[in-house]
Design a protein around this nucleic acid. Sequence first.
DNA 1: TATGAATGAGGGTTCATTCAT
DNA 2: TATGAATGAACCCTCATTCAT
Lengths: 212, 212, 212, 212
Amino acid sequence: MGQQSGKRLSRKERERREHRRLILEAAEELFARKGFHATSVQEIADEAEFSVGSLYNLFESKERLYHELIEMRADQYLRKLAQRLDEADGPADKVRAAVRCKLDFFEEHRQFFNIFGNFVSGAESASPPMLSKTCIEIHGQIHRQLESVFEAGIQQGIFADIDPVLAVLALEGTTNAIIGEWIHTGSRKLESMNPGAVERILFHGLLDGKAK
Amino acid sequence: MGQQSGKRLSRKERERREHRRLILEAAEELFARKGFHATSVQEIADEAEFSVGSLYNLFESKERLYHELIEMRADQYLRKLAQRLDEADGPADKVRAAVRCKLDFFEEHRQFFNIFGNFVSGAESASPPMLSKTCIEIHGQIHRQLESVFEAGIQQGIFADIDPVLAVLALEGTTNAIIGEWIHTGSRKLESMNPGAVERILFHGLLDGKAK
Amino acid sequence: MGQQSGKRLSRKERERREHRRLILEAAEELFARKGFHATSVQEIADEAEFSVGSLYNLFESKERLYHELIEMRADQYLRKLAQRLDEADGPADKVRAAVRCKLDFFEEHRQFFNIFGNFVSGAESASPPMLSKTCIEIHGQIHRQLESVFEAGIQQGIFADIDPVLAVLALEGTTNAIIGEWIHTGSRKLESMNPGAVERILFHGLLDGKAK
Amino acid sequence: MGQQSGKRLSRKERERREHRRLILEAAEELFARKGFHATSVQEIADEAEFSVGSLYNLFESKERLYHELIEMRADQYLRKLAQRLDEADGPADKVRAAVRCKLDFFEEHRQFFNIFGNFVSGAESASPPMLSKTCIEIHGQIHRQLESVFEAGIQQGIFADIDPVLAVLALEGTTNAIIGEWIHTGSRKLESMNPGAVERILFHGLLDGKAK
DNA sequence: TATGAATGAGGGTTCATTCAT
DNA sequence: TATGAATGAACCCTCATTCAT
């Protein structure tokens, strides 16, 4: 009863999800700023304007909340990346798409970079142990997708005969460093750090083309 | 008092430094493995075979200990890097030296990468806030050194006309990703991740040279 | 309003009582199994298939619910005991009736023994403090009834000249120990723990009759 | 070094034991009065005039503290009982010794009765689940000792041919009821509840000897 | 100087109770 | 009236830091 038009979700259920979203947002901001251990459940609840009890009605534990936060954003990212790769034509374009997708995503969710980015460097230390598994898996998925792009490009003679794993590390490492620099230098987008410049360096390297 | 002859350090002072070193070593291992918050002062003291009281006689606080640990290794790294850059001839060789220096250093001190690497991505989250300042400064010093290498290389027409900041990010990001992969995939040195392969990708990019 | 004809209880009132009964039953099982503190209001509501809100509409508090549970069963027991004592002829028979009544009652309601039995030994510890008063009163009523049986038996020369208080304690203590043993050893009725054996030991004591 | 005369315990170790004793005493009083769940660690620490932290330096957990408390007193009781049984001559005397030993012990440690006595009636509900095992075992030890006394007495024709298990339950149940009554009626020793009266009722039963 | 027991604020979590719907 | 989400005080426990010895 009542109008359940498109969504067929009860009001209760809709509210529940909204409240979860609000808490996840508050948590994202705090975890990103202070890290997992230094953020208290009380702070998250305060920031989201709920009581601790309510938080625990919606999430099993602080750890599980962190987990869900990462899974939510990571899924979002994975879906976006898959779509952009799918839309792009040919290996070179797919690499460009991957770069742009990543820069776009983390420009919008730069808080999340501080949470997820930690794992890029293999530093699982700052988070609950159980978590690293999830993060490693997600990184694995991203890497596998990109590796297959490079493999295709190498077979087609577009890319040089470089180990695809290494190619992915160069791509991911470079973009991570750039995003980190954005965040760290106070959020303005540096002129030179546009996708074009990144692609140029990835595709052609540092050496002067004319010199070759 | 006592003999201060050649070294102009008293036995007391020498012992003091040795004890600090032992504690810093124990701390490095634990911080790297479990992170700052999950490592207790008691554990560090136990591992180093001192009492907590002694630890506090030698270090102001847990936070300060972490600080000093990073400063110690970072200084070591900075000195080594400066020396290698100095020894190398010409911008291209200096870049090769920087890559090799970094891979060498973190292969020997991979524990330290889990501590210091966290800051690479701008993620100060996992550590006490005061700390990030030190780390940012150190990263700043490294970056400035490398930037001047690239500036020289560009002026000499060896490197393409790329923003040196971006070039440094590519260099640092790629090497970070590789080191992270080493550590994470269980410490064996992947075949393709030798300095030569890294330099190839940095210098010539991903595209097939013949295609150009 | 509504039909109140024969029973002079409205449907509302009848439902109310039925719901209270259902909740009390669920609570009895849980309190007996897990104790007062380890049983949550939520669990009771779930077990009885009501919401917590409904539970609180019917009972003032968890503590009061516990209270009423004990009062309900204790009244039931007191009525049954009074009836059996009334039906029995002479002090000795009344004692036999008391023993059988108690064993019968707690065989049927062994869950309740875990709740009420706690007070037997004067141990009010596990329950809310306010509760002990009710329990003490009920124990008092039982004891007074039994004491008057012994007083009569002594006056009639049937029982030895023992303090009736002590006699009641022997009767109650022995039966409590037996019921506790039943429950504890897993619910089978031990061969030797029949009312006859209990009465034998209470009436004639441990010493061999022939030896007298 | 220092004088370690009789005890060869360091001062540190002696203090440690003394502090444990003080906390156990405070805990005994509170657990006895309010039960396990209703007693907070903070309260115990306050009562013993230590900080919570100190309590946790000396005891693993609240549960373990409770455990140790029971084990300590129960061992004390078991030793005393064994000694008294050993000293007594013949089954009848041993039963007398058991009664007196129990009344003496719990007169001195009536607080402990509220903790340990709970288990007499098989009501394990009020305590942490792990605990009941310890208590059941201890009760088992006591019962086995007493059962063998009755078995011997029956074989020697001193006791009537009653199931020894039942005889033990009568002995234990009766004494429990009496101790409970002592505690509950405010600690004065009732005139009629002297060991002699208890033994009389246990040995000769309720019936008037002349009537037989 | 070296020790480690003592401290207590702060952590994550639970749950009896309330109240808007 | 029936519901169950929201509340927050209180729980047990940890650990960086201090200080008497």
